[in-house]
């Protein structure tokens, strides 16, 4: 398979990558760029653990060919905030104990970011509906929904 040069903006930084046509965006983020936030869960679009923002909209990086992202802008959980300055959503997840094992958390956070960018003041029902594709096997949904609701007041 012929490799292809692509330019993808990841968390604000322009990256030049030499990719195989069957490289998945998730694996490029994790293995080539060292961004370990997005997780491999189901691989077939059921769980939401691999969610990243593509041009600001939540999408599943395990079902995206990285070569199709040429010229696009990706935001992973690492792009939301950093250790010194957490994004209000990240701080709110900590404050509300909305993290148990943590595996679903990056997907939850970026999906919630997508929600607040679209709808800055969502109701509980709207939060639950928007997050319905992100599964938490620890079943920590109550705290997660509360964290998003509280963060919406801060954002």
């Amino acid at each position: 398979m012929e490799r292809k040069w692509v330019k993808i903006k990841v968390n604000g930084k322009e990256r030049q990558l030499y990719l195989k046509p069957n490289d998945l965006l998730l694996n490029v983020l994790r293995d080539e760029l060292g961004l370990m936030g997005a997780k491999y869960g189901c691989g077939i679009g059921e769980c939401g653990a691999c969610t990243v923002l593509v041009n600001g909209r939540p999408m599943l990086s395990c079902l995206i060919l990285a070569v199709t992202m040429d010229g696009q802008e990706i935001t992973t959980v690492e792009g939301l905030g950093d250790y010194d300055q957490l994004h209000p959503l990240q701080q709110s997840f900590l404050d509300h104990g909305a993290i148990q094992c943590g595996f679903c958390t990056p997907g939850m956070l970026v999906t919630a970011k997508g929600l607040l960018d679209e709808n800055p003041n969502p109701s509980e029902e709207e939060i639950r509906d928007y997050l319905r594709g992100n599964l938490c096997r620890c079943t920590g949904y109550t705290a997660i929904v509360k964290a998003v609701k509280e963060a919406s007041k801060a954002v």
Binding site: M1, E2, K4, P21, N22, D23, L24, N27, Y40, C42, G43, I44, C62, L65, V67, T68
Partner: peptide
């Protein structure tokens, strides 16, 4: 089946 990767190989075309 390993859904972590896309195992098959193919030519990629876009326009």
């Amino acid at each position: 089946t390993n859904t972590k990767i896309l195992a098959c190989e193919y030519q990629y075309l876009e326009s």
